[in-house]
Design a protein around this nucleic acid. Sequence first.
DNA 1: CTATATAATGAACCTAGATTCAGGTTATGG
DNA 2: CCATAACCTGAATCTAGGTTCATTATATAG
Lengths: 191, 191
Amino acid sequence: MPDGRPLRADAARNRAKILEAANRQIIARGPEVPMEAIAEDAGVAVGTLYRHFPTKDDLVTAVLHAHFESMVAAAEAAADRIEAGAPAIDEFAGFFRFVLELAAGNMAVKAAARALGADWEEDLLRGRGLQALERIVAAGIDRGDLRPDMTLDDCFLFFATAPIDQPAPVRERWFTLMLDGCRADAARRTG
Amino acid sequence: MPDGRPLRADAARNRAKILEAANRQIIARGPEVPMEAIAEDAGVAVGTLYRHFPTKDDLVTAVLHAHFESMVAAAEAAADRIEAGAPAIDEFAGFFRFVLELAAGNMAVKAAARALGADWEEDLLRGRGLQALERIVAAGIDRGDLRPDMTLDDCFLFFATAPIDQPAPVRERWFTLMLDGCRADAARRTG
DNA sequence: CTATATAATGAACCTAGATTCAGGTTATGG
DNA sequence: CCATAACCTGAATCTAGGTTCATTATATAG
């Protein structure tokens, strides 16, 4: 809660414990975990959860924020490396593999991706992340790595369609197919 | 309910109305629609729903069955046409486009695909549908249309990852990328 | 060390939706 | 037309999980 006042020592401690527990629980069991479960994991009463996060949604959002941050950071790092000379296609692949694997072990991110659907671009990616992606795609096309008709929207397909709940080999295979579909020489009329 | 006895006239009528309503509601609003909603749509009391379908799950399953059937039928038709000389890649694409569009306007199928996840192959596809798909893929590879390393599992990726809730243009674009990734000349090392 | 603003607690409250069942209807064989 | 098995109805029951709040505890300024 955005008060001016600083948190009392115990309150700060609990807030941290709650965030940790929420992270643990939500990642493991998805955003539908009961607040009770989070409270128990945190060693705190439900009421305390609500003191720190007025609504369950607030808590979930808080947990997700960190994960989205790391995705954006990864995108920026990839874009930087490309512009520093690294092979565009490798960075492109590397970034999406990172995102894929992050989400794979993370029911929260998974569910969020579903729920937000076409919306999450609004929030986080329509910012730093969006820019970084643009840089990646542009360079990829420029260097003849990615198909010329590749767009930013195609990147969202990567996020939105990853078979996150499938076992690793399946994910890997999907990644191969999808990436091959994005390569420069894959483009053609599908009509 | 699998009794020996035939249904009473009014019971049969209601059963039909329920199925219709359930189909309508579940397709439109997904499997989470309240039983009340279905009952109301059917012009019947909740109790009647339960008389015909002991549990909500039974009802949902019944509704889904028809849709899965149509998918399997489509697969078989495509396989037949291929073996009768039709271009493999076109039939391959056509079949998946059909499934994609079917699911797109169908919250039920969508949710089912998610929920069942890797399981639904067990049920319906591990039967006629599975065989039809095998025929399609085999012919596609044989004729040099599909990448040589294409497998049946790749087909499940088509089901599992389709961006069903995205708008039509997005779905179409995804279809293009994915299909291009499945073509014979797309294969390469991605590792 | 107190006073008191902050916090924590957890039982109680609410809502939603699935499921049940006692009691009233109705199709239909004879 | 009757008897009665099949049916239907819908209020009541149950459960689950989010949210509240009166009560009790505790950090910390002075």
